[in-house]
Simulated assay, not measured.
Amino acid sequence: MKIWIKRMLPLVAVGMLLVGFGSQLPAAAASAANANGLLLLAVFAGLVVYTWFNASIWSDVLAGLGENPGRVKATRLWIRSEVMKWLPGGIWGYASRVVKAPEIGVERSVAGASLVAELLLTIAAWSVLALVGLIGSGRLLAGLIELPDAAVVQVAALLGVAACVVVLVFRGRLWRAIVGRLAPLRERSWKASSLLRAFASYLGLCLFHAALLQVLVLAFLPESEGLTFFATVDGMAWLIGFFAIGVPGGIGVREAGMAWLLGQVMPMPEAVAIAVSWRALQLAAEMSVLAGTFLIRPLRPFGTCLDASRAGL
């Protein structure tokens, strides 16, 4: 039963997105067809750069725990492992990094600890971005007072119930995993300078990510809000997707949140088209960067990475 819950969650999340915004899809498709192709290409290129540099920050997190495997090696392993997040449960993107860490000279216990530190720094960076953007974007703050239509409210409620069910079913396993990962953090000496550098890098990349979202909106609409608005939208959408427990990559959930937030200041069809295009471009960028790792001093055939999905934590 638990396996079926894991496998069904992504389908349920995407299905709810289609139900909630189904009436907007024809107009959204028409809007996407008329989007500026050059700006879409620029956003794609920017997301490729973002993906690579985001992966490279893991080496700073490892340095903060006393390990220095080399930035290129750590980046390549991060990228190859990240694709595993699409497996049911959403944990394999992290688990495969722990399993494969000895290949770059990092102990598995240290790798596990680095994942906790990385998550905390990433959540902090996106939260700061969303908060600063919200403070600086009065129009969005006023827009949030307006409630979405009934269909979106129902979808949000169902997603909330589904998330609660997953947490209740897996609460023991989740708690043991968190405690186990935190143990090495207590045992190792930290290098604050490296961790602060990692946080600053994450925050800078989050701002760059929001700027790319702004460019994407310009591909659909001739006028755009300020960067603070998109910092809030991007930050809040990321957090919404991250805390959608069990949904790989927050797919469906993140798009619903972004479409609703964008819909505060633009027609909903365009908001839906932008949210879906944003996901599609990010997936294309991730796959392109993944392919690039096999052109730059490949470590092993890709099939070995899949072994992580069968390894025990």
Rank of each mutant, 00 (worst) to 15 (best):
A219S: 08
A32Y: 07
G133K: 00
G15Q: 08
V153F: 15
A33Y: 09
L129S: 05
A30I: 12
S137L: 03
G143E: 04
R173N: 15
L306M: 13
P10Q: 01
P298W: 00
R300Y: 13
W52C: 09
E187F: 11
R254E: 05
V128M: 07
V272N: 00
S194T: 09
A32H: 05
P10C: 02
A13L: 01
F170Q: 04
A244S: 09
S288A: 15
L159I: 08
G143Y: 03
F229Q: 02
L174F: 09
M16G: 12
A32N: 07
L185K: 03
S127G: 07
R171L: 13
G249E: 00
A177L: 11
S127A: 11
A275G: 04
V161M: 11
L11E: 06
L174M: 09
W175M: 14
L213P: 06
G312D: 14
A200N: 03
A157I: 11
V289A: 05
S109G: 14
V247H: 02
F243E: 03
A259Y: 01
L205E: 01
G226I: 05
P269S: 06
A308G: 09
N36Y: 09
A35Q: 04
V98A: 07
A28H: 01
A177H: 10
M16A: 08
L261W: 01
G133P: 02
V99I: 10
V169M: 07
L17Q: 04
